[in-house]
Design a protein around this nucleic acid. Sequence first.
RNA 1: GCCGAGGUGGCGAAAUUGGUAGACGCACUAGUCUUAGGAACUAGCGUCGAAAGACGUGCGAGUUCGAGUCUCGCCCUCGGCACCA
Length: 881
Amino acid sequence: MDEKYFAKKIEQKWQRKWADSGAFHAEIDENRPKFFQLEMLPYPSGNLHMGHVRNYSAGDALAWYKRLRGFNVLHPFGWDSFGQPAEDAAVKRGVNPREWTEENIILMRGQLERMGFSYDWRRQMAAHRPEYYKFDQWFFLKMYEMGLAYKRQTQVNWCEHDQATLSNEQASGGLCWRCGNPVTKKDLEQWFLRTTAYTDQLLDDMADIADGWPQNVLKRQSDWIGRSEGAFVEFRVSGSEFRVKGDELSLVKVFTTRIDTIYGANAVVIAPEHPVIQAHRASFSTHLIARIDAIIAENLKPKDHEVEIEKDGIDTGLKAVNPFSGEDLPVWVGNYVMMDYGTGAVMSVPAHDERDFEFAKRFDLPIQTVIEPQINADGHGSDEAFTEYGVLVDSGEWTGKTSDVAKREMTAHAAANGFGEAATTYRLRDWGISRQRFWGSPIPIVYCDKCGVVPEKFENLPILLPENAPITGTGESPLAKVPEFYETTCPNCDEPAKRETDTMDTFVDSSWYYFRYTDAANEILPFDPQKAAYWTPVDQYIGGDDHAIMHLIYARFWTKVLRDLGLVKFDEPFKRLLTQGMVVGETFFDDERGKRVYYVPGNVTVTRDAKGKITGVVSTNGKPLKYAIERMSKSKGNGVDPDEMVDIYGADAARLFVMFAAPIENELVWNEAGIEGAVRFLQRVWRLVYKWQEAVSGKQLAVSGQEASASARKLRQKTHQTIKRVGDSFDSLQFNTPVAALMELSNAIGDFGAEPENADENYIFAIREALTSLTLMLTPFAPHTAEELFAMLVGNEEGMLAHGARFPEYNEELAKTDEIEIPVQVNGKLRSRVMASPETPNEELEKMALADEKVREYTDGREIVKVIVVPKRLVNIVIKN
RNA sequence: GCCGAGGUGGCGAAAUUGGUAGACGCACUAGUCUUAGGAACUAGCGUCGAAAGACGUGCGAGUUCGAGUCUCGCCCUCGGCACCA
């Protein structure tokens, strides 16, 4: 053994040993409990960044912990390798997307291996390989059979910058999720997956995972699905001059969650795209048509959400009858009513809805109060809408009833009279998966002049991407320019036909990849249901919370489809989810010429005020700079290269530090200095083992707890207390606190100060227990170092898993301290401390406290009102002042 | 605007869930050893104070023997959503 700790030597040695022995290969074993540890798969950009390192370090720590707890652990890795950047590289540098992607995978896998993550690489999947995307197509055909995949003409979210269509999730906020540019609309024939067939399940099954998922992720998903319960109510369009044939066009159906406010409706407001407009267009004035078209055009413009959109609209001149009151209401077009939510029409109740209130104020429409607060308080003036529940007024036969009751009764009334019904609407839309892109899984559909839209035959899968296609980054799919690809024959009639040239959204790949790990080489099925039944569902999933909505909703949807296909027997794919915070870096830049120029942190001088706040940043040449904390990336000049970290400090130190530096769910501001602390700690442990190695290794030691020296007993206490703390931390997914506990233990081992030469057998036993426990508990954070130390302590070279090593066993008896410090307070203020055995009875503690010299300074001559004794905790003496 | 999370030393953070606030680490200060050290070790390190002690977990109130933790009101920061009827 070297006296000094050489990270590189140890790390290379154990990485080779693990690979050679297949240490992390997982096989089905019915006799052992399984644990499926999964981290979100990365896009193979070619560079590992610290965000990845943080994610995989946490996952690897849990994988190791579970192995040491005796679990059969599946810990796989794969690549989300279809997608935009490969095409960007093709456009910019003329590279072949396939070659570029494969090269990146090799590069990144090398980086991951140098970090020493414990993956079963035999199960590696990559979305862009035909053996994987074949089953994207397989699933598509299954969903087509089930009626879950369909095509329709639609206005899609379109990103002009990326020349790509986007799902609602990807266009949320009106900005492209990838490039951040504004999203516009475009008409296209698109393929959809019917996620809305599962809205209720997606919502209701959250109850099953409520314990294991972060609250805020569940909340965001349920907001996104946006179920709202209310009623449809039909308003008949009146006014003879506008009457048209066909009942459906003379009706405007509105959706409302507040049918109890219907007597306060002052208008029916419809979306500018509403079919009623089309039906009546011929009778509209040119001015009216121009205004409506202007509103449509305005709505299509990208929206800046910082600025509130001003209400706009126009009276169509049409009238609609309120079926409850019989009143004739004007029909308005409003820019705030959206065609794709609810029915595209609302009843406007300005007294009780903020938007309607604003609209009515803008256009001088009447405002009629029909709900009053239940508890008499005439506080609601005319300057705002009263949107709470209350008691109805001026509402016909429902006057005097509460909102709750009225809602129920009025809905029933509408249904009974045929002008309405209870209804639920959702915000969630079907998932548009068509992309006019090359680097994705081709949609297995053929268009035949004779047979129409024909699904491919299963035996023809995979529909292979061509080797080459003219990738320009714009316009229609590159596949539409490759006749060898799109010219085919109809699977139905064998006549010449054309293939679909759209490819699938890459979120399709990540919706089911974790199942593929259970049976990665299957050529017939996406996976063998029996193998999946052993390994899935995923026990622990770890990734960034930027995927809280899109990826996680799609994956949950996909799992429900798998269940309905009979491939799995559960509803939810991920039992537990951990969302880790971003790794961010300090960025220093100047903004001259509108272009950001970045500076490396070392080349700047930072001045701080007395409170530590940064007051100014100056570059070495004296130029004042701007300062920001931003997500790490190479282009921003604040990136850290994991390879460089490994080179300088070692993989173990980098991993240990990234786990220790902050709670996993917090944002982590990368600070290079901290990592040296991790190196120091590993060196300290190394020196301890080096010092004691000879004394403790390979010896049979007889222990007799009774006669053991105080220091030996104390060391065992600390060891067992640490075992408890570290185990509990892992079980509650904390990674920073167990590292602190291990540091404390190593400090304690050092502090006892005995030397191997003069230590007795009991002490050596205690030291061996402490060092072995410390080593085993260190494994999840610093596996290479731990393997090496374990080999030294136990005298084997086969690796701790092959050796059958287990997480140290906690012994409550040994963890008990024989004397504890009991703080003594007088009137809640700490005045003294007394030493006592934890078993000391309360009366005894009270006596000791009252007798304490320091305490008596405060109590002498005062009346003692009472004494509170909390066993093992404290004594508080209450005196009269 | 709505929803969510959070405000603890110079910094990252702990705190057995109502019981010694600041564990552990970074940075810093002094010292030991050393030819040297960006090594190791020792000591110190919330604020004020010579000390005794007082004060101290965003601000203000409250409950309690006792509050970082519970309740109410306010301020601030970060994240998400955004005319969803």
